[in-house]
Design a protein around this nucleic acid. Structure first.
Lengths: 168, 168
DNA sequence: GTTGTTGCAAATTTTTTGCACCCAC
DNA sequence: GTGGGTGCAAAAAATTTGCAACAAC
């Protein structure tokens, strides 16, 4: 069986995150360690946005046998982004991560009140992005589109607070 | 003469940045100090992206009579954003600022190689943004759209470096 | 066995804050 | 005169790094 039996695109969609990460590590001469395995498994256990500190807490809380140190978590997050498994966003000063691998491309509505992130997808956005880039001879590798505002729930709670009798 | 003689939109476009800032300060019971005046004047002297540290350097370099301290610069930048004079972006870990007041709305192509920012405007983007938000009952206050990639100049220099003769 | 990896703590980097003194109002 | 503002230095917060012990390969 030759290497050609697996086209890159097939491999990309069929591998589990951990397998994909191991592939990445091997291609770079890096080692598959216990910590890296634990990290990937943990991160892809559920689909949520998180930052380095939250992840570190989860890997250390209520257990004396810490699964990974702070330094290792930071180093692994960088690798996971590099491997295309995670996406990194700079929000309000700190880095927030989310699944990228095996997850459809999307953008976010960011509520500046409760700091929640609402995902959405828009084909038109990508089209528009590529057109603009082409006009500037710019080679696109990605984008960050964050729409700031107030989510529906916060609008209601704010309305209740600020205008108790102004309903009429 | 009633207040209505000055519609908000007229006032917004006719005032100088400093005047606009003074208006903001007065409305908050804050004081118009020498440092705040110097900062606004300096920041709006030219249209460039900058971070807190660059600004601080410019206000202190080659002069023993420092124009503003680090703390004052950080505090003023927060006020200027709050006043609507500056826009803040979180790029690569640190905050980058640019003119907002009196400057047309725009977005950026961000070269991840030379870290330059290329501005562009797209009506379609705003339209698309509003449509998406409306679909989620989300009240938009703004957005950040950053297209990452390699600018034209860097594409050329990279091409030259990496494949001199394509040997080996 | 060799070489990359981890953990720890110290170091960096960026931004915030407490407080005594100063100045705009 | 008074209360907000400034500068300074220390503190915080987030992330990176040097290095000795350790573990993949």
């Amino acid at each position: 069986m030759s290497d050609d039996d697996f086209a890159l695109s097939d491999v990309e969609v069929s591998l589990q995150p951990l397998e994909r990460f191991e592939e990445y590590l091997q291609s770079r001469g890096k080692r598959i360690t216990k910590q890296r395995r634990i990290l990937v498994e943990h991160v892809f256990r559920r689909h949520e946005h998180f930052d380095a500190d939250e992840l570190l807490d989860e890997l250390q809380q209520s257990r004396q046998d810490k699964l990974a140190s702070r330094a290792t978590v930071y180093r692994a997050l960088t690798e996971l982004v590099d491997a295309g498994l995670l996406r990194k966003m700079d929000l309000a000063g700190r880095a927030v991560y989310e699944h990228d691998y095996g997850y459809p491309q999307h953008d976010h509505l960011y509520c500046t009140h409760c700091h929640s992130l609402i995902e959405f997808h828009s084909d038109g956005l990508v089209k528009l992005r590529n057109e603009v880039a082409q006009g500037h001879q710019f080679r696109v590798t990605g984008h960050k589109f964050i729409v700031q505002g107030i989510c529906e729930a916060c609008q209601r709670s704010l309305r209740r607070q600020k205008r108790p009798l102004d309903l009429m």
